[in-house]
Design a protein around this nucleic acid. Structure first.
Lengths: 249, 249
DNA sequence: TCTATTTGTGCAATATTTTGCAATATTAAA
DNA sequence: TTTAATATTGCAAAATATTGCACAAATAGA
């Protein structure tokens, strides 16, 4: 096998995974871990990925240093993202919420998928900038430091203009009676508008967020079309949501 | 078998596969590996494929990303950015245009300067995110791929809401009679609104852009308060602008 | 036609690169 | 701290490239 073939395979892996491991690649490519390490170093020198302890993570070009803040080792969220991905179809208009879960979805998105994406998240917009067939509509507003999303009335008014097919709602607390809630007032306001502007709402939630509530109201639980979790969906804890007509995945 | 026939077969192989091996070609073409190697070298010299250890791979055209563009000829622009920097004072509301010049200014901005920045440029917003005392208001709209700015009616409406102290206008063509012009229609539309929403307009222009014109009108020359160039401002070529009441720096 | 020259090919000697291993150093986690 | 995992370094063996050369085939000029 040519060295270039190995390079291609490593880069392909990083197209849909957020991290590749030395050990995994070593068996996959049939070479020693040392060789994989050297390959990764060479690719890192070319700026095609970022070498990290134990493997490598994607490193996309462009001036987006917020990309570095992604926590790549978040297995739960990665599982959720992979599950959610299957519900995105060609031609849809999708609102992406600003959380890390939605960001992972953006990163795993097949490059040939045609979408119109509406978002208020810098990281998501900058990831999708590389997708030729994705139109990005970005919500203006005040930039919230450290979470890289725009908020405020301008962002709200922006989302109100659209009628999206799907809203990918980042991880919030979900409680069957109290509804969907979030920890930040202004972000919750924006989320509420995102939901109002979408036909279907897919909530991305790690299981520990189910049954909990936070200070600020976002929407009623029944408004959700689907909850994507990191666990098996046939758990009986989830029955309460199924009764409300919500699919669990 | 003619050498040209071998060439054709090698190239055909690379049309289907992503790689060819020396050994494989050697048996296929009934010549020694040395000959194949020489063939590949010759084809590589013509740029028809890429010679690699053990075989060859298709020649991939390198990506031309935003990041790559930043490096080029920024000496001039750095001079301009440094000069422009002195006009920014605490407490001002400043509109940053999306060009590389404005980006360099953002990069050089002292961390303790208090500003409100209004922009439609991702790179600028993400640079300023690290400035604790800078409030960033980001214009929504359609994201223009590869230049990382938002454009369209939404962006225009956003800028119309403000009354800024200064507009830092990225490098356009400036002609004393024909006014300020740009090469892209939609970007020029946005620039026009930026200018309308600002008290003062500081144009950033490399000297070769002075006296030239492009297709799309942005504003009259007199509307500029100042032109920052990379040359000494006492050049007599600049007199024509001074007569219009524009400072040169 | 015949010779002289060029070109393409394979072979062998030598140089370079790649690879895996082992010893040592560094880092992250308990 | 100690401990386990991962990285780095130097090295030798294997794989591959390069070079020089001999020889054959094709080409050109007389």
């Amino acid at each position: 096998m040519l060295k270039e073939e190995r390079f291609q395979i490593i880069l392909d892996q990083l197209g849909h995974e957020q991290k590749v491991y030395l050990g995994h690649l070593s068996t996959l490519l049939n070479v020693s871990e040392d060789t994989v390490r050297r390959d990764i170093k060479e690719l890192a020198d070319q700026g095609l990925l970022k070498s990290v302890r134990g493997g490598a993570v994607p490193h996309s070009p462009g001036p987006h240093h917020f990309r570095d803040r992604i926590k790549y080792d978040n297995d739960q969220k990665q599982i959720i993202a992979r599950k959610a991905l299957q519900f995105l179809k060609d031609g849809q208009v999708v609102i992406f919420d600003g959380g890390t879960s939605a960001m992972l979805i953006a990163q795993m998105l097949p490059k040939d998928l045609k979408l119109t994406v509406i978002t208020n998240s810098f990281p998501i917009a900058s990831i999708l900038e590389e997708h030729e067939h994705v139109d990005v509509l970005f919500a203006g507003g005040r930039l919230l430091k450290d979470s890289f999303v725009t908020i405020g009335n301008d962002a709200i008014q922006f989302f109100k203009k659209f009628r999206a097919d799907i809203c990918l709602l980042g991880i919030c607390s979900i409680h069957a009676d109290l509804g969907v809630t979030g920890p930040d007032f202004e972000e919750s306001e924006v989320k509420r508008t995102m939901i109002e502007s979408s036909k279907e709402v897919i909530a991305l939630a790690t299981t520990e967020k189910l049954g909990t509530a936070e200070a600020y109201y976002v929407c009623r639980t029944e408004r959700l079309s689907m909850i994507v979790t990191d666990k098996e969906p046939d758990n009986k804890d989830f029955d309460i949501y199924r009764k409300l007509g919500i699919s669990l995945v």
